[in-house]
Write a protein that binds this DNA or RNA. Structure first.
Lengths: 326, 326
DNA sequence: CCGTTATATGGAACCCATGCCATATGAAAA
DNA sequence: TTTTCATATGGCATGGGTTCCATATAACGG
């Protein structure tokens, strides 16, 4: 590919003058400018951003670490984050960690090498300490990564409470919630603690089913739903994320149990998945787009060297009534 | 951040020697090596990939152009592509074009500047000519971009035929297919031509409904489904992509029409969405992961400067029986 | 003991831009 | 006429690595 030297040679000027034209800075005679622009076109020249980035010590790239891109929650998150980054003139790199420490660690190292200007991490497997050594701006989604890394999340306490209350209103007497198997304590796990607490306060038995999958795959959800259907025949209320909730409804339907007549379901997340099953899901909705743009806004602040007003952003959840509860 | 100069100074050696240690090349005394590694650790030094990339004239980055990240088809595609790229030691940049020429053009320019090593494009809005000037390796998903850009797609003719035959087997007498509004002729549009053709061969009336949305949003799909439900009351067979098919089933159900008793539906794509509605969808499945890894394999070949054996890769589609047809 | 080779290290050009500084010209001000 | 300033342009250090080449010492065979 042509370089600025080639352009300078062809236009018979110095590289500095070409640079001035490229960046529209300093004095350049109109005539000279034309000559240079002609040379640029003739050579199909495009400035090398790598060289620019080296000089300016910034890349214009931000990275997103997610456990799984095709999970609807993260797909929507990435979608919104990319759009927000674009509006800041930033490009977006994605890193799929598959919930594995190795991937996460390797990617962090890679991103540090690539000198990305900032990182938004939505993964939870790696130790906090590993993040300390990455001296780039970082924003965490749904995870507390120490004192100097801001955390963006929704109000999961409220979400867990809303879910519990919806099932109680729906008349449930014995409920089950499907929880993740996360080792680290994340804000999002709080919803399960609150959910259980509210149930106990109301004298309702609450079973915690710990999911075993670590891939987003409908067949895994179905398998879990089948196991639940066989093991717990007397549950009349479920709390799970969108996809698992959908799998539960379908699986139990095949066992002859109708939702919402025989049992109720409250889902969590509120991705488009919640409108697909029949009956449609009553869901606690996370404002994914707002989460993403908050992360990006915050990250851009860090990139500019500004101090964020708060290290903990908590957005509100929303209750969306579907047909899976009474 | 520390540079190789800092490391050299601290270890009291030349930068060349440090470089040798970093790249494990040439001769370095064990003692010196240790000294250098100590300095690296003490300074928390990480080599600057931007500088490396500049010298080597390659970035180790590939870019994915997609119309919309959160669309399940593309989310799964990106997911698989990222994984494949990772196995080649490549990082993945994503660009959301929202089906707009401006975004697509702007991103192409940006990617050229950033000197990404390769581009996989899954978007169709921009003129072919614009791709000629991007002298980087490109692979196109589902689109013919001239003679020297390879195209990866599924056998859409077969897909369209299978869909038609499924509806015929299901006893349909008047069918409707929901098509995109694409201006450019893409391999994927072929399925609609074949579908219509097969219907006519069998003396079955076929209506083409051209979708108006250009965002992936369930409410848009529902609106379209509502319009269809009201305008065409005598249709007993539908052909549409997963999400639209789901919306049709739900909307018609609310109008008192049961699937598959009163009408049949064949969906296209075969993302996880097809397992969510009730009844589950009979679908023509595109092997999205294989499409993605084919694109990546092909792109890596181009990056290495090899000539691909074929400029047209066609993968097979699969018929998956659900409960939305008889 | 000397020429040859393996080992060990550093200097400097190179990758491709940017932008400071030096230099040169023409015009306006003094 | 001389000083001053706006205009115009080019040279070169800089950013942070890599690698070729030059140089130096130690080990080895003859």
């Amino acid at each position: 590919m042509a370089t600025i030297q080639d352009v300078a040679k062809r236009a018979q000027v110095g590289v500095a003058t070409v640079s001035r034209v490229l960046n529209d800075s300093g004095y350049v005679k109109a005539e000279t400018k034309e000559k240079i622009q002609r040379a640029i076109k003739e050579l199909n020249y495009t400035p090398n951003a790598v060289a620019r980035n080296l000089y300016h010590r910034k890349t214009g790239i931000a990275a997103l670490l997610v456990p799984e891109i095709s999970h609807p929650y993260f797909a929507e998150f990435i979608d919104a984050a990319e759009t927000a980054l674009y509006s800041y003139g930033y490009q977006c790199m994605i890193c799929n960690t598959w919930r594995e420490q190795n991937y996460e660690a390797h990617y962090l190292e890679l991103l540090k090498q690539q000198r990305v200007d900032g990182i938004i991490t939505g993964v939870h497997t790696l130790d906090i300490d590993r993040y300390r050594l990455i001296d780039r701006p970082i924003v965490a989604l749904d995870r507390q990564l120490g004192d100097n890394i801001p955390c963006v999340a929704v109000n999961h306490e409220k979400g867990g409470r809303m879910a519990a209350e919806a099932l109680i209103r729906s008349g449930c007497r014995k409920v089950l919630q499907v929880t993740g198997q996360s080792h680290v304590s994340t804000p999002s796990n709080r919803r399960h603690e609150i959910f259980e607490q509210v149930m106990h306060e109301n004298g309702i038995e609450c079973i915690n089913y710990i999911s075993k999958w670590n891939r987003f795959s409908y067949t895994d959800f179905r398998d879990a739903a089948l196991e639940i259907a066989e093991k717990y025949t007397d549950i009349d209320g479920f709390f799970a994320t969108d996809m698992t909730a959908a799998a539960l409804i379908h699986t139990l339907y095949e066992k002859g149990r109708r939702c919402p007549q025989d049992f109720s379901v409250v889902a969590y997340d509120g991705t488009y998945v919640s409108s697909l099953p029949y009956p449609s899901l009553t869901t606690i909705v996370q404002p994914v787009s707002e989460l993403a743009s908050s992360c990006v806004d915050l990250l851009m602040k860090l990139v500019r060297g500004e101090k964020p007003e708060t290290m903990n952003i908590r957005l509100d959840v929303e209750y969306r009534q579907g047909s899976s509860t009474l």
